[in-house]
């Protein structure tokens, strides 16, 4: 006997699946929406009883946000470009340092000490040092971001190599690979999840750092624009920038999530009940 599939059953199943996905997304997003609504409500009520330089109305913040998105986009793009360049450099250098620490034992204690010392220097110190050392604001910002972010990648990549299963190394060793082949075929794919995880963890922090660096030493960029708004007592603009930064961080997190889903598709999803 052949099992007959009723006409339209597949479409119905697909429609049901889509509806189920939509309800899952709504259920997941509902608490966030509730929290946002409560925050906006509190801000609006506060704006009724306080001067606009303390708490502007929600509509005023919305208007400022619209102006930023339409007229001040160059600040956003400049900040994003700075962030992208410094992040790319930090990922490359941090990963290289982590790999050197993981693959060359004699150098490891010295390099790790250096990275840990770097990690222990407060971001503010680096910002002040950069002001003394560099005249060009672009170099200042690049330097500040790099020295702050590199240790995260270096230490996490080093830990990733330390966590490399001995079984894999032995199994690959039976083919007598060169050191470069071990790096390229074994270590590099193994550290990718760690690099993505580090990026996910620090992207918000890196964004904050670039804003601080712009605040103290740049004429263009979100940090600089926020400094100008603060100087002009434009609280609605400061809050509009803040909202935009939160949105950007959510976009980054989503983008990294999509990259992870693509690059790490080989990993099984664990379900804890």
């Amino acid at each position: 006997m052949t099992d007959a599939i009723p006409a339209g059953a597949a479409e119905k199943r697909e429609a049901g699946k889509s509806a189920s996905q939509l309800s899952t997304w709504l259920a997941a997003g509902a608490p966030t929406l509730v929290v946002i609504a409560v925050i906006l409500g509190v801000m609006e009520v506060a704006s009724w009883y306080t001067p606009s330089y303390v708490m502007p109305s929600v509509s005023s913040i919305g208007g400022a946000l619209w102006r930023l998105m339409t007229l001040d986009l160059h600040h956003v793009l400049t900040t994003l470009l700075r962030l992208a360049i410094a992040m790319t450099f930090a990922i490359a250098v941090g990963t290289a340092l982590g790999c050197i620490m993981g693959m060359f034992r004699p150098i490891q204690p010295y390099l790790r000490s250096l990275v840990i010392i770097d990690a222990g220097i407060p971001a503010l110190s680096w910002m002040l040092i950069a002001v003394f050392w560099f005249r060009d604001p672009e170099i200042r910002i690049f330097f500040i971001l790099s020295v702050i972010i590199i240790p995260f990648y270096a230490l996490n990549v080093h830990d990733a190599i330390r966590a490399l299963p001995k079984d894999w190394v032995e199994a690959i060793g039976t083919f007598r690979p060169s050191l470069f082949q071990i790096f390229y075929l074994l270590i590099l794919p193994h550290i990718v999840p760690y690099i993505l995880m580090t990026t996910r963890s620090i992207i918000g922090y890196a964004m904050r750092m670039v804003i601080f660096a712009e605040l103290i030493g740049a004429a263009i960029g979100i940090g600089s624009a926020m400094g100008l708004a603060q100087g002009a007592f434009e609280m609605n603009v400061v809050l509009a920038w803040t909202v935009l930064l939160v949105i950007l961080n959510l976009v980054f997190q989503q983008a990294i999530g999509l990259i992870e889903a693509r690059v790490l598709r080989y990993r099984p999803e664990a379900t804890i009940r």
């Binding site: 079984d167 894999w168 032995e170 199994a171 074994l186 080989y266």
Partner: peptide, 11 residues
């Protein structure tokens, strides 16, 4: 060489 556990690379 083949080992007791498969030692396949997950990626």
């Amino acid at each position: 060489v083949s080992f007791q556990n498969d030692r396949l690379l997950p990626w």
